[in-house]
Each structure stands twice: as C-alpha cells, then as structure tokens.
Design a protein around this nucleic acid. Structure first.
Lengths: 143, 143
DNA sequence: CTTAACCTACATTTTATTTGTATCTTCACT
DNA sequence: AGTGAAGATACAAATAAAATGTAGGTTAAG
C-alpha cells in the first residue's frame, strides 16, 4: 500500500513552494533539477495543481508558479486526495467478488481509509517547513 | 493507494474460512472456483498463511486447510500487514530525496499509516461474518 | 521576433503485479 | 504397493499500471 510517485513528487514540489520566499516563482526546470526528477512528471503535476487552483501559474518569459494560498491554508489531506488517482483501498468489482452484496470488508477498509485521511488532515504545508526552513533553504539552494 | 489483489484475495479466502463450519476443510480448488480467482494466486496465499500459522494445512487426499484459531482471534489489521508486501506509504530513497534528512513528510505519512492500521485493528474475522453468515453460506455454496 | 516559460498530446519504457505452467511431495484409501 | 487428491515449490509469461520521454503548441516579456 503505497502512494504513487506522482503524489510523492507533488508533495515534494509543494514543500519547495512552501519554503520559497513569498512573491517569488518557481519553474518546472528548477524543481526537476533540484530534486532530480522527471521533468515531464513535474510538468504534469504543475499543470494539475494549476487547474485545481492550488498554485498560480504564469506562462511566458519570467513565468513560473507559486502557491495560491498561504502554506497554512494548504492541507496535506487535500493534496493527497487531489494527487492520488484513486483512494479506493480495494476494488470489489474487478475482479467481481460474489459476496460483495453482503460483505463487510469494504466498509471496514473505507473506515480505515478515512482514518488515514483524517490523520493527514491535522497537517498543512506550513507544518512541513516549521522549524526547518533554514536547512531546507540550504538544501534546495534557495538564495 | 490500493491494497494488492493478493491481499484482497487473502481476505476473501479468510472470509470463506470464517463461515466454514468448524472441523471442515477448504481446498485451493474450491476457493479459486467459487470466487473465480487465479488458482495459482490462491495457492501462494494458502502457502503463506500456512507458514505464518494463520491456517492449518493438510496435504494429501482429503487434505485442505482451515483457520488455526477462532475467527475472533484473527485480527484484520494483522492479516493486512501479513499479506501486503510493504506498508511504507512513500519511499524517500528511490528516487532519493535530498531533503529527506530534514523532511517532516515521512513522519506525517507514517502516522497516517498507523491510523489506518489502528482502525483495522478494531475488527476480526468474526466481524466479517457477524449477522450475515446465512447469506454468505448461500452465496459461497457451503452446504 | 526571439526566448523562456507553461500547455497538451501522445509514445515509449520500465516495473510490479498478476497469472500460468510444471513438477514435487505428502497422504489417504484401495 | 499403487493411485489419485491435495498442498509445496519454482520458474516463466503476460498484463497492467506507472513512470518517463519526445514533440510541438501557446503565451508573454523584453
């Protein structure tokens, strides 16, 4: 049971934006280089987060993107739900399970999935950079 | 974020064993047929659960397998941990993340993973067949 | 009008999962 | 003893999903 890299990369990207001084923009190039990740993957994530309104993107020369809200307002649970394709823990349909009409398992797993999300909901992007902004700036070469 | 089919099938199999009248044994053939699942997959699951002591397997003619403990004693959380290969929500090593030494994300996700497991821990196999043993017996053709 | 940036689409590669095939070992029953 | 039914074990193949790559389009600053 693991999150996709897509989601992982998305969270790394958001962490980057959270340490970025307000008013500054990041670029796809910059992020894929500093984290050494597939440029295309980052591209897709930026595109999605832009559409969803989490980040503000700007095209053209001198463009880039930055958080659309303060880090405190960006909840980790929401970001995981957004980035992860499916949050269904099991799929009773493929392959179809005959007992699913009377099966209690799905409900139990759904509840556990909610517990997972509820736990994440306690944190925002601000918590990711709290007390470690300095070393992050160092490592991410933001100066 | 989804459990492997292997885990899913394992839980279906355990449900079958939980409704099976005590003293009776199931066979790999029987289960893969009634659920219409890969015989080989079920084979592997039976093998693993046997090694782990969750079920008692018996070779040879008239053989088969059954729960080694009462359904009340078989916790869903334990079964998921057992069946699922990895419970790591993200992997900071592949590809290596530069900020991992100072990153808070892993801890947050670990905590959420624990919340998931803790939620499952409230249930045992007995809960899966409580109040619906009759329809399950019908559907699974156990008579 | 050139360049830097995001946008969009599609194609390819890689990996993990799932499934399949084959043979071995055990054991009950005749 | 021999036969057949059952799990044990190993390896091979197929599938699907994820990850990555390539190419060109669009926008905007200078």
């Amino acid at each position: 049971m693991q999150l996709n890299r897509y989601t992982d990369y998305g969270l790394r990207l958001l962490t980057y934006l959270a340490v970025l001084p307000p008013g500054q923009r990041a670029s796809i190039d910059e992020i894929s280089k500093v984290y050494d990740l597939s440029r295309n993957h980052i591209n897709k994530i930026v595109h999605q987060l832009g559409k969803e309104g989490v980040i503000e993107t700007k095209r053209g020369k001198g463009g880039g993107f930055s958080l659309a809200r303060a880090p405190e307002q960006v909840n980790i649970a929401d970001m995981v739900i957004l980035l992860e394709k499916s949050m269904l823990i099991i799929n009773c349909q493929t392959p179809t399970c005959r007992i699913s009409p009377v099966c209690k398992l799905n409900g139990i797993l759904l509840e556990a999935g909610s517990a997972f999300i509820d736990s994440l909901r306690k944190y925002s992007l601000a918590d990711l950079v709290k007390d470690n902004r300095e070393p992050l700036i160092q490592i991410l070469d933001l100066n």
